[in-house]
Write a protein that binds this DNA or RNA. Structure first.
Length: 765
DNA sequence: CCTAGGATGTTTTTT
DNA sequence: ACATCCTAGG
């Protein structure tokens, strides 16, 4: 029965079978992390733990789905009874059944970030604040990060440091916006994404009717995937589940500090450190999965080298026995257009030479906007491709409009839904009217819906509002009776949306109608098919149930058939967890990768470096990097220097593609700040990078590199990282001169080959 | 209340 | 470059 354990290596086996007590699994890229997690759950079930006593939290629906499928392969149907799902969906599920205890309707709406932003915008407007300084995006991220750190509006108001930061950013009233935002969501019967976490925390904290004990007893085993991406709030909830007197502390977290790429959203690898110390006294076991089964040595060792430049990391040695493999290719292009063409050329070449299928190839970029050139050339070369990212189905206007009608039918308090559709299609209820009602609602602290029709505006507007109310009421009644599909088709017709869309005969209009119909088809499928989310089949086919189901679906959950053989184009973030035989990481330029937004701080650079680490570790056999000297950005030609990360690649791992199309090469780096710096904090098993980031006695601030073209054999030079050295030889053509330099202070191979174009060297004699 | 065209603001984003 | 947002005039 337990042949599933056979294929595991030693550490994996231990991580799977050591079921009791706290466990931390540090899992390098390609080390079989998902395998350990799923087999561990399967193993628990085989040992007699009931599936519904196991709670497994992931970050994406996809990961949860995959996990369940793989558990199913070992234990069959029982896998569906495991509570496996995303933090948000599992917590939403718990909150649905406990909502009344904290003053929410059980049919609460879930606001997506667009809804949240819209709420914030209306508050900013209401408060008459300067729109220049109060950007809804910035305000939301501020509020979100407060919530993620358990800072309530009251605490925020009293927090001198936060208030000070806000004052300096010229938005001193954020604390007030936060308070209003919270109140507004509450009276709309709505929770935003952060609330799904925060309100659960609050529920457990207040613990009415001992609700917490119920869940502590229910879930005997807790597992967390991608633990490095959890924020403080998520970890606090996890601790609520397992850390209490008498607990068995059966918690297993799996993560990789080197792949933490969501710090900008509040994720903190501090949680991994805290986890170790928090559970130390309960005999925590730490397992490190260090064998990489994905990539060849050139790739794995390059990744190791690069991540070594980061200041803090959990010490581990990732290794591969897949052989050296191919060197990493570096393509240099003059322009972004040329980059696109050269990449397409290379893809064609690889397909011919190594018989790769499109599906084995991916192009990864830092920003979604970069996809266009590649699209163009792939189309021209007749190579099938698919772009991931961008607008998701549920973010399209026509879809959101319809969903808003559905939401309002289920939860009339939902103010965002109301605002969205009260005048769509046009029915003569304009902004002025709406503002008046909103003001009254705010003053009375009541849902806007309840103030509709109670505020006198004028003859015409009042009549329009009365019509709208009676229509919405019929929707609300319908929603209680029919199944989701019946209600939706009724609303589509009766609301006038369908006619509105049918009336538009433009190409975009047809497209919108198509999406709209796709949504209705989705509702139909929901009603007719067995839908499984989180734990069990949904028998409830009501509209309310449907909305709950789709609220947390996003990205590419619109399960498109996996058929079709296409090259994948996506952002590096989106590629996490995936693997391809051949990977192209493009746009390797300063200000792009690393992003200019991240360049001010060392933390920012470190996160970008982890992102680069994630990018290159997606590759199994072929890794190609590219950059362009110039590219269009915001409609203007910009010149960028090659990314600092390129210099961090060991020369012997690189194969430079001598491009015939780029005869001129811009001079190398000037004096911009260098990667890495001293002063790394060393705590616990964290270590300094393999070699000091900056050679002793050199101040990066004052270090000024000389023109690399001047470097000649025999010179004494100063290198920012390796210190003083003597140039033994210079070879290569003008565009790619390579110097062999002897560094007397450096560790390991004292003699290094350095590509002058990249090097920052100061001539000292 | 509605529409056209000028002003504006651009990272990544599991949920 | 481009899409979205805002403001002035119908």
């Amino acid at each position: 029965m337990s042949n599933y354990l056979d294929g595991l290596n030693d550490v994996q086996y231990k991580a799977v079978t050591h079921t009791d007590g706290p466990v931390l699994v540090v899992a390098g890229p390609g080390s079989g992390k998902t395998r350990v997690l799923t087999y561990r759950i399967a193993h628990l079930i085989e040992k007699g733990v009931a599936p519904w006593e196991i709670l497994a939290l992931t970050f994406t629906n996809k990961a949860a789905r995959e996990m369940k499928e793989r558990i199913g392969k070992v234990v069959g149907q029982r896998a569906n009874r495991v509570w496996a799902g995303t933090f948000h969906s599992i917590f939403a599920r718990i909150l649905r059944s406990e909502a009344e205890k904290i003053g929410y309707p059980s049919s609460f709406t879930i606001y997506d970030s667009d809804d949240s932003k819209s709420v914030i915008s209306s508050i900013i407007q209401e408060m008459n604040l300067n729109k220049e300084h109060y950007n809804p995006n910035a305000v939301l991220s501020r509020i979100s990060s407060a919530k993620s750190n358990l800072i309530t509006p009251k605490l925020y108001e009293k927090d001198a440091e936060l208030r000070d930061q806000d004052r300096q950013a010229k938005r001193p009233h954020i604390y007030a916006i936060y308070a209003k935002y919270t109140a507004k969501c509450k009276r709309s019967g709505a929770m935003d994404f952060d609330d799904l976490l925060y309100r659960l925390y609050e529920l457990f904290q207040k613990n009415p009717d001992n609700v917490l004990d119920k869940y502590r007893q229910k879930f005997k085993y807790l597992l967390v995937d991608e633990f490095q991406d959890t924020n403080h709030l998520q970890y606090s909830i996890i601790r609520k589940f397992v850390q209490y007197p008498g607990s068995a502390h059966n918690i297993c977290v799996v993560g990789d500090d080197a792949q933490s790429i969501y710090a900008f959203r509040g994720a903190t690898i501090q949680n991994i450190l805290d986890f170790e110390s928090d559970f130390k006294k309960h005999d925590i076991q730490v397992f490190k999965l260090e064998q990489n089964y994905r990539s060849t040595e050139h790739i794995v060792q390059t990744a190791n080298e690069i991540i070594g430049y980061n200041r803090r990391q959990i010490k581990k040695t990732i290794w591969s026995d897949k052989g050296e493999g191919h060197r990493i290719k570096l393509i240099k292009a003059m322009t972004d257009t040329e980059e696109g063409q050269r990449i397409a050329d290379t893809i064609l070449e690889q397909k011919n030479r190594y018989h790769l299928s499109n599906g084995e190839i991916a192009i990864l970029y830092r920003t979604n906007a970069q996809s266009r050139v590649f699209e163009e050339y792939l189309r021209r070369y007749n190579i099938a491709y698919k772009i991931f990212g961008g607008l998701s189905f549920y973010q399209r206007k026509e879809v959101k409009d319809m969903v808003a009608y559905l939401r309002l039918a289920v939860n009339p308090q939902d103010e965002e839904a109301l605002r969205r559709i009260i005048n769509y299609p046009k029915r003569g209820i304009g902004k002025t009217t709406l503002d008046k009602i909103a003001t009254v609602a705010s003053q009375l602290d009541k849902p806007m819906w309840e103030c509709l029709g109670k505020v006198q505006i004028g003859k015409r507007a009042d009549a329009a509002i009365a019509d709208f109310i009676s229509m919405a009421k019929t929707f609300q009644v319908k929603a209680q009776q029919g199944d989701a599909h019946e209600v939706a088709t009724y609303i589509a017709k009766r609301s006038g949306i369908l006619d509105e869309l049918k009336g538009d005969n433009s190409v975009e209009g047809m497209n919108r109608l198509e999406n709209f119909n796709a949504l209705l088809d989705g509702v139909k499928a929901f009603v007719e098919e067995d839908t499984v989310i989180d734990t069990e089949n949904i028998e409830d086919k009501s509209l309310s149930s449907y909305l709950q189901n789709i609220a947390l679906l996003t990205d590419l959950d619109t399960k498109e058939e996996e058929n079709g053989d296409y090259v994948t184009l996506m952002s590096v973030h989106a590629a996490k967890g995936l693997e391809f035989k051949s990977v192209f990481v493009v746009g390797m330029e300063e200000k792009l990768f690393p992003s200019f937004m991240a360049m001010e701080s060392m933390d920012g650079i470190d996160e970008e470096r982890r992102l680069f680490y994630v990018a290159i570790t997606r590759a199994e056999q072929f890794l190609t990097l590219s950059y362009a000297n110039s590219r269009y950005r915001y409609g203007q030609m910009r010149y960028n220097e090659p990314s600092r990360f390129l210099q961090e690649i060991p020369l012997e791992r690189l194969e430079e593609v001598s491009g015939s199309r780029n005869p001129t090469v811009r001079p190398g780096f000037s004096t911009s700040e260098q990667a890495g710096s001293g002063g790394a904090k060393v705590s616990g098993h964290f270590r300094k990078p393999g070699r000091p980031a900056v050679a002793p006695g050199i101040d990066p601030k004052t270090f000024k590199a000389d023109n690399p073209a001047d470097i000649q054999a025999g010179m004494k030079v100063l290198h920012l990282k390796f210190g003083e050295g003597k140039v033994l030889a210079v070879d290569g053509a003008a565009s790619s001169r390579i110097a062999t330099i002897f560094f007397k202070d450096a560790e390991d191979p004292q003699q290094r080959k350095i590509m002058l174009k990249f090097a920052k060297l100061k001539i000292i004699g």
